[in-house]
Design a protein around this nucleic acid. Structure first.
Lengths: 198, 198
DNA sequence: CCTCAATTTGAGACTGGGCTCAACTTAGCT
DNA sequence: AGCTAAGTTGAGCCCAGTCTCAAATTGAGG
């Protein structure tokens, strides 16, 4: 690749990172190109689809989440690991509107590895009796979807509000809180499909 | 008003009710007009803004919610009233994508009366020790936003999933579940502003 | 039946994005 | 210096939606 091409690619990524963070994933591509100081044609040259740009921008975040998950498993207390992991993911969501959208679409855990780790975190915290036994991995989507909605609604007007939402959600997941949950949980396939709908 | 005008108005409302329910509030106005068998110009004649149409379509729902709230207060058990009310609202959300959007925007409780009733329902359930004392009226928004997000994501692929989400949220609101909640709650003004952002 | 104010109509102006491609420019090699 | 493949450019096309307004139509009172 020619060096001007490399440079433009980087400028585009920088611009996209910023604009996604401030405005979410739906930011106009023209605006990204303009901010990068490059023409719309060049943007399409480097990134033929919006998704390819998004994937590139958030690639590091996927790694971050995996790291977060490993930290969680390394913690002595299973509940602290569980709650800490969810808090970490939600902090990423709250700090970047683009990532907030990205997480909702399920991209955060893609690559199987994320899913597997998350399952371990959950099962460990259930095994120790901290997390209620009747929740499933797929129920975790409710936390991500819910907090994402709260972040979207409140980031301008009450930026910390999502922490209360998360705290309530976590309290609902504790073993002490358990009542019976209605209906069968979503299958993993259903959850993936639902995330694609976002 | 001439009788053809009245008729067209009603056709438009019928069409809008249906299309909002199936596709949410963002349905193209042209499609509503087409479905009603009327021209786009007529739609604009009868309803100068989208909001005026929306308000008309969901006027009855606002009344329904108020009725739901009064039923809740009439129930012997404060918790049952509280949980029943939230369940009723969520059922409306799940049954109508348009109302789902409408509720998120806070229109559901507008007209002060709704707010006052909701506050009574909450305070009664806190007074009896069923609902944790540290939650505020404004925290109820998390339930609506959260379930709305789940409804949007899952209505095609797992239509009942929101009930699990709601059940978990309710368990988080029970007195037994109480841990400390972080930060100050949103003010009513902040909550209203946040809802307007949706 | 006539009249006219009320109503309807739909072509088209306008907006805001996505996306393309022929013409131009330039990095980097020999 | 000259060549060429790689890269850039942006005008312009497309699509989908909102909204307007002058002309055509029609209900209903006299």
């Amino acid at each position: 690749m020619r060096k001007d091409a490399v440079q433009n690619r980087e400028r585009l990524l920088r611009a996209a990172r910023q604009l996604f963070a401030d405005q979410g994933l739906d930011v106009p591509l023209e605006e990204i190109a303009r901010t990068a100081g490059v023409s719309i044609g060049t943007l399409y040259n480097r990134f033929p689809t919006r998704d390819s740009l998004v994937a590139e921008v958030f690639a590091d975040r996927v790694a971050t989440v995996a790291a977060l998950a490993e930290q969680a498993l390394a913690m002595a207390d299973p509940w602290d690991g569980f709650a800490g992991f969810l808090t970490g993911v939600c902090e990423l969501q709250a700090g970047d509107l683009g990532y907030n959208d990205f997480a909702v679409r399920g991209a955060a855990l893609e690559g199987d590895r994320g899913y597997g780790l998350m399952r371990q975190i959950l099962e460990r915290a259930q095994g120790s009796g901290d997390v209620r036994g009747d929740v499933t991995l797929t129920d975790m989507a409710f936390v991500v979807w819910g907090v994402a909605a709260t972040v979207r609604a409140t980031y301008k007007v009450a930026p910390g509000a999502w922490r209360r939402h998360l705290a309530l959600a976590l309290d609902g997941l504790r073993a002490g809180a358990a009542r019976t949950l209605p209906g069968p949980p979503m299958s993993v396939a259903q959850t993936r499909a639902a995330m694609r709908e976002c």
